[in-house]
Write a protein that binds this DNA or RNA. Structure first.
Lengths: 228, 228
DNA sequence: TCGAGGATTTGAACGTGTTCAAGAAGTGGG
DNA sequence: CCCACTTCTTGAACACGTTCAAATCCTCGA
């Protein structure tokens, strides 16, 4: 049976084991030598299975990347828990969530470019905007919903309801920047997060000013109107 | 000799002719059957040359796409002239420039997704953020500089100087939306442009409010600090 | 225990983008 | 006109992602 994400369900424990073996081998090779230089033959070889077997579990090389991305998101959701539990103010909550993403993703920075490349193709089910990746996207947006819910942020209701998606978009922007960032320890991206988050906070608080409020309402209306 | 864009210079008129033949054939096939389904062999065949010959003039299949993009930009710059000459107000100037882009790009909408996919890869010289595509990017940004310069827009100097690049980013966002837009005549993207432009205008005029001005200054400072 | 039927695994084969050594065609100086 | 030199052109060969028919393994009811 083929699921929406293109990952084949395995019925037996042995199958499950093979699937995990293939994925972990692939991720290791991706990390060690990059996505482009890792061939499906090499993955199969290293895992001690045949090429066709890898394709039995993962519909394509890109699906192995998608599996990595899912894994990454799970790790991120877990790593973010202590921050959401400890911090009460909006700024450190958001900054913490974004910084944690950078930490979790660090080992994969080198080949992340290829991921983004695949993700940007609208025809690909791997695109972050695609219907197929809705579950993963929703889970990710939910993290930002919790960032807001648990914070001291006071906002108009309609803006507040759109904000999780907007912050997710912000995160996509950070990822795009990160992918292009070649500095040590992605110093520039960290600087971006550190400066952008307080700015977002200030921007949001501006909506209290009457003159700004109208524009903010229109912005929210626009965002709502362009959502499918 | 290989240039920065990967396009081989041709020394003779004959070579130039062959190069154009290959490009026009490629673009026609891209339009007729999409980027993915057009093979380099088919392009060479249709153009009556050998595969290797196509690679003599264009370093890769992606470079043919880049050549298309450059062509598109030239067309856009030309098509935009009457608007910049006729309109004096910021909103119709910006809206006109963005709408014209949609018009010029319309024939290529179907395979534009693949273009965006390639463009999003940071390692690719075809990325709109890459050093190699700086000339094309600068030319594109210059259009937005003219949109602002020739308009009635009154802005703080530092914001005004960063605005062309910001509008270029807005355009990238519109392109991303456009690529995903499957409605007839990209109706949704047109609606987005029509609503977003007046909103941008209102946002910019907000910087006159003292409380907003400080945030705007910080935003400009942030943008300047993250530029390489 | 046996065998039917599903799950898993294999590896050769296909189509693709790309490379490259070799040759053909053009150019300019003598 | 000829010869060296550059430009241009060729097509076979390579590496890769992917497919698929066939083989093997596994499970479970009889």
């Amino acid at each position: 049976m083929i699921t929406l994400t293109g990952v084949t369900d395995s019925a037996t424990a042995k199958g499950e084991q093979t699937r995990e073996l293939i994925l972990s081998t692939a991720l290791r090779l991706f990390r060690e030598q990059g996505y482009g230089k890792t061939t499906m033959r090499a993955i199969a070889n290293e895992a001690g299975v045949s090429v066709g077997n890898a394709y039995y579990y993962y519909g394509s090389k890109d699906h192995l990347m998608q599996a990595y991305y899912d894994l990454l998101q799970d790790q991120h959701r877990e790593a973010v828990e202590p921050i959401l539990a400890a911090e009460k103010a909006f700024v450190p909550r958001l900054a913490g969530v974004l910084r944690t993403w950078l930490d979790v993703s660090a080992p994969y920075h080198e080949f992340a470019g290829t991921f983004f490349k695949t993700a940007a193709d609208p025809r690909s089910p791997l695109s972050p905007f695609s219907e197929e990746s809705r579950p993963a996207r929703d889970a990710s947006i939910d993290v930002f919903r919790r960032v807001i819910e648990g914070s001291d942020l006071k906002l108009p209701a309609d803006l507040k309801s759109e904000l999780p998606e907007l912050l997710w978009l912000l995160q996509m922007g950070v990822v795009l920047f990160w992918v292009h960032d070649q500095t040590d320890d992605v110093r520039r991206t960290r600087a971006l997060v550190d400066r952008a988050v307080p700015l977002v906070d200030r921007l949001l608080r501006l909506t209290r000013i009457p003159g700004v409020r109208g524009v903010s309402n229109e912005l929210v209306a626009l965002i709502r109107s362009i959502k499918p």
